[in-house]
Design a protein around this nucleic acid. Structure first.
Lengths: 138, 138
DNA sequence: CTCTATGCAAATAATTTGCAAGCAC
DNA sequence: GTGCTTGCAAATTATTTGCATAGAG
């Protein structure tokens, strides 16, 4: 796990517990965003006796620190992925099998100024997700 | 309420009930997406005695028929807006007061071909939401 | 009349909160 | 030691489902 993550935790007055370390490592292992439940299941499979509540609490905290990003794919639950040290990107999910694929692109940056001019809002973030049918399902 | 909506309902084997008409009218009155709960509250305020369950069931059905669109703004609940007869667009929500404003723009159409080429998915839809701070809250 | 729609109660599912005990620093 | 953390139980919130009755076409 990157040193800078530990620094960011310290800067937020957070401690590096066993549970927390396991959560961060599991998140870093995943190439696509996963739900709190999936994360919890993966940890238990590796014999990390952790409570689901702890997973939720840590995901929330990591999000506030900007180390993790939440992704909502409209299926009733949130998914989370490491943000720290990874490039900003978006996703596409298959309507058939639910598979998620990273899309290493973002056409929004140039648009932010337009949005700010139109709305007078100070744009802080955005979400962009695609839905469709993967090669196997279509 | 537009005739074509009634036609679309009929085409789907749906009836035009009092509750359904009220839901559609309330949705058409709203300029921004609203939650099932908000919709329910507005109907009761106008003395339309309808059950929350009926609201949910109708929103789900209208979505399947393509008459309504679901918008997820990452705050634990879905919002819905009329799609039929309105132009495709996106939204921005204030992190402070929660206010939602329509953004009549969409930079994604041109991008769809790129995404399809990259992923081999057949892209069906997308979501794009902005978050930031409105003039009053920043 | 027939089939869809609704209300009411109850069930799910995801996520959050309270509190006492545990662990990092 | 002291304060952040965790586990366990319980509460919340959003949404869904079962079933008998009511209503549209």
């Amino acid at each position: 796990m990157a040193d800078s993550i530990i620094e960011r935790l310290r800067a937020g007055g957070k401690k590096l517990t066993k549970a927390r370390r396991a959560i961060l490592e599991a998140l870093e292992r995943s190439s696509v965003p996963i739900t709190a439940g999936e994360l919890h299941a993966r940890l238990r499979k590796v014999r990390v006796p952790i409570d689901l509540v702890t997973v939720y609490r840590n995901l929330g905290m990591l999000q506030k620190l900007g180390l993790v990003t939440a992704v909502g794919l409209h299926d009733g639950q949130m998914r989370y992925e490491v943000r720290h040290g990874r490039e900003h990107h978006h996703h596409i999910q298959c309507r058939g099998c639910g598979k998620i694929v990273d899309l290493m692109l973002c056409p929004i940056k140039k648009l932010t100024a337009v949005v700010e001019a139109k709305t007078k809002f100070a744009v802080e973030s955005h979400t962009l997700e695609f839905f469709g049918w993967c090669p196997q399902c279509r």
